[in-house]
């Protein structure tokens, strides 16, 4: 369990670095969320408790990189984790298309949640970067799921 978590956090650090320093450097208003893909990955490949611990700590680690109210980002990812965990019994999450669509939907929900929390009129955010970011998040989601799966295999730990 420890080896898996450490490996996942190593990958998360790289993902966070890409999200805050590299992606905005290429297009300042573009944001790609790689943690959503990892969240789906841990739901598929790891046990509930391992996944929950990872999502909680990972979303807390995102806090210093945002101006969001303390606890708001963990709350959203926790909501995402529970929602996808529930959907696990309804949807076949191993399907790549399902992962892509789920990631796009959750990315849009998260952005809209930020917008609502700030009492901003809906649709006022720049729409093109949001759409591009959601689409990229969706496209990269299966890759992140695969990465989590490979980490689990490499660590030889039964879930």
């Amino acid at each position: 369990m420890v080896r898996t978590q450490i490996s996942l956090f190593g990958i998360l650090l790289i993902a966070m670095f890409l999200e805050t320093f590299i992606v905005p450097g290429l297009w300042s208003t573009l944001r790609v969320d790689l943690l959503i893909g990892m969240t789906i990955g841990v739901i598929i490949h790891l046990s509930f408790s391992q996944g929950l611990v990872f999502v909680m700590v990972a979303s807390l680690a995102l806090q210093p990189f945002s101006g969001a109210r303390t606890g708001f980002i963990p709350m959203l990812y926790l909501f995402g984790f529970f929602a996808i965990e529930l959907l696990k019994s309804v949807l076949y999450l191993e399907n790549v298309q399902t992962q892509l669509i789920l990631a796009v939907i959750f990315n849009v929900i998260f952005v809209e949640a930020y917008v609502v929390s700030l009492d901003m009129p809906l649709g006022q955010t720049e729409i093109w970067p949001l759409l591009a970011g959601s689409l990229l998040t969706g496209v990269l989601c299966p890759l992140m799921v695969m990465v989590v799966g490979n980490v689990k295999k490499a660590c030889y730990e039964p879930s």
Partner: peptide, 12 residues
């Protein structure tokens, strides 16, 4: 760097 969300406007 910039804010991890596209809504909050903070920079590092």
């Amino acid at each position: 760097g910039q804010d991890i969300t596209n809504v909050f406007k903070t920079v590092i």
